[in-house]
Design a protein around this nucleic acid. Sequence first.
DNA 1: TCTGGGGTCCTAGGACCC
DNA 2: TCTGGGGTCCTAGGACCC
Length: 423
Amino acid sequence: MAAPIFALVDCDHFYVSCERVFQPRLEARPVVVLSNNDGCIIARSQEAKALGLAMGDPYHLTRETLARHSVDIFSSNYALYGDMSRRVMETLAAQASEVEVYSIDEAFLNLAGLEWRGLTDYASHLQATVRRHTGIPVSIGIGPTKTLAKIANHLAKAHPDAGGVFEIAAVDVDHALAGVEVGDVWGIGRRWAAWLAGQGIHTARDLKHADPKAIRRKMTVVGERIVYELNGRSCLPLELVAPPRKGLTVSRSFGQPLTRLEPITEALLQFVGRAGEKLRRQRLMTEHVMVFVMTNRFSTTRPFYSQSATMRLPYPTDYTPDLLRAAVQLLERIYRPGFHYQKCGVMLMDLSPAAYHRRDLFNTRDQVRQSRLMCALDQLNADHGAHTVHFGNLGGSRPVWAMRQAFRSPRYTTNWKELPVVR
DNA sequence: TCTGGGGTCCTAGGACCC
DNA sequence: TCTGGGGTCCTAGGACCC
């Protein structure tokens, strides 16, 4: 079998590009997208990067800069981004036979067998096709390993004259790697970059020529593999089928700090309801429920408190009332009066396919009825919008714990009431 | 007032078993 | 005098990713 040739297709400032598709006036302007709760900056257009705005900058600390430069600000709109991502991935799947969806805005492809077309030409064609079908700009890096394809992608973005496509094998690899900081290598985070700098390793080229065994002693087999991958020896194969997921979390910061148990319980019930939906959509069941609460870890005036509790369920389940019961008990176990809570969440662990557990002879619950009930509930919420039917008491108006979302764009592609209007 | 959310993998060390 | 050794499972902690 031919050695794989990896291409990494990465959407350019993806969330900003999604907003631009529906609001062309945003082209060539500084635009940022904020995280949930309008907490910090998680996507920046090129023009916003040029203003010195960094990934992860807290919104409340950059507010003045944003205003001074008339930066367009958006709350994150995951209904929109998720749907646009699906369109991009479908376009790629139609163009290449082996595609691994790596994240909401990235995919690895195997281009082996396409050399006769010219890899760079093929990538440019792919780039144009995605743009035409979805409106989303992408950059493509090509290399003999995933790590080198990632670096090629980084170089494609760093050198605009490359046209957004870069094939590392087409240039002097060592020379190219010498221009990449070691902290920009895939898998090297802040901690390891600092340690490597202390060892005199500053660039991707330095790391490529480091002793893999010495790297392994500090950075485990993960670091060792990075060294091999930089040398063109592929250790990370394309994963064509997604491995089964191990756990599932739903958590949010509150729009304001909460002290009383009641609103925290209300928020948690919503999160559990959402977790149940996710579980059923993926046809999974859970055996462990974990609930956690925490106060603001950045506060200098109030004490920090963070606690979690776990419960093993008597049987695997995907029935929301089972989960709600467990969650309420767990929350009561860890809630302490007197703290200003900022966030809570639920984690479902030990997931397994629901198909393994249906028709459990020793289980006397009416599983058929429960399953029909959950199906009906999920269908109603899918047809009429989330929260049409829900657990707990939202009281009609906006709950006190609702997250801040001051700048959200319409859900153009997933909500009939918010379709874009062409005038 | 105001700092996201959702994941993965690896290792060391302790408990336990035979 | 002398106190095994190997396997498995679990958990906590630390690192990373987008």
